[in-house]
Simulated scan of single mutants.
Amino acid sequence: MVKLRSLILALCRWADRATAVLCGTACAVLVASVLAIVVLRFGFDTGFIKLQNLAGYAFAVLMILSLPYCLARGGHVRVEVISERLPAAYIRVADTAALLFLMVPVFGLMIWAYWPDLLYSWSIREGAIETGGLGGVYLVKTALPLAGGLMILQGLGAVLSPEARET
């Protein structure tokens, strides 16, 4: 049991590092593409639809992958009006129950419900909506179930972490 717990925690740490790299890359691509769009539009009176699509794709990936990144650092939102008056042990039990009985089923359902659409998108190699746009929409759509899986993994990591047992 201890070996499985440490394996899951190691997987969570590795997934968190990979998510951080993906978020950082998406952020850099977003900043660079928006800067290029502004310079090209206002400096040279020209534009590229593919560059605008790239900015949109980078933003989508950054936003969806920021959720598991935030969860891994305990940055989730909570209403502190009630919980600040409760004992730490109660909050830990409530967090564990919420992670296991609410978050895991919701994100599991999200993956399950979205899977057929994702498979179809991959089968047709879904491209851009606009004429002349950047292809690869199916790659961006893959970020949604990936983020759902990462949320489940980070939630399990939060429940199994050594810090969780100290409170």
Rank of each mutant, 00 (worst) to 15 (best):
I37E: 06
L160S: 09
L62A: 08
A18E: 03
Y138G: 05
C70P: 07
A15N: 05
K3W: 09
L65K: 00
T131H: 11
A143V: 00
A88Q: 11
A15R: 01
K141D: 02
V79D: 15
Y114H: 12
Y57P: 00
K50I: 05
M103E: 10
A28Y: 02
V104D: 06
A164I: 14
Y138L: 04
L139Q: 09
A158D: 09
P162N: 13
I8M: 06
V140P: 01
F101C: 15
L150W: 02
L153N: 01
V159C: 10
K141W: 01
D16G: 09
V61E: 00
L30V: 08
T19P: 01
L134H: 13
W14H: 13
A20G: 11
A58M: 06
G149S: 05
G133A: 04
A26H: 00
W14V: 13
R85I: 09
T131A: 15
H76K: 02
A20C: 07
A58F: 04
W14M: 15
C12F: 06
G155W: 03
A88W: 03
S66R: 02
K3S: 09
R85E: 14
V2A: 14
L146P: 04
E163G: 14
A72Q: 02
P105G: 04
A97W: 12
F44N: 08
L51K: 02
A88P: 04
T19I: 02
L144G: 00
Y114I: 04
A88E: 08
V61A: 05
C70E: 11
D117E: 14
M63S: 10
F44A: 14
S161E: 10
L100G: 09
L30W: 07
A128M: 03
K141M: 01
Y69W: 15
G135K: 05
A97V: 13
T46F: 06
A147K: 04
R5I: 04
T46K: 11
N53A: 03
T96N: 03
V93D: 11
S6V: 09
L156K: 07
V140K: 03
L102G: 12
L7D: 06
W115F: 10
A26V: 02
A10L: 07
K3Q: 10
K141V: 02
L144H: 00
A55S: 14
A28I: 05
L51P: 01
A15K: 00
W112K: 05
L109I: 08
S123V: 09
T167H: 15
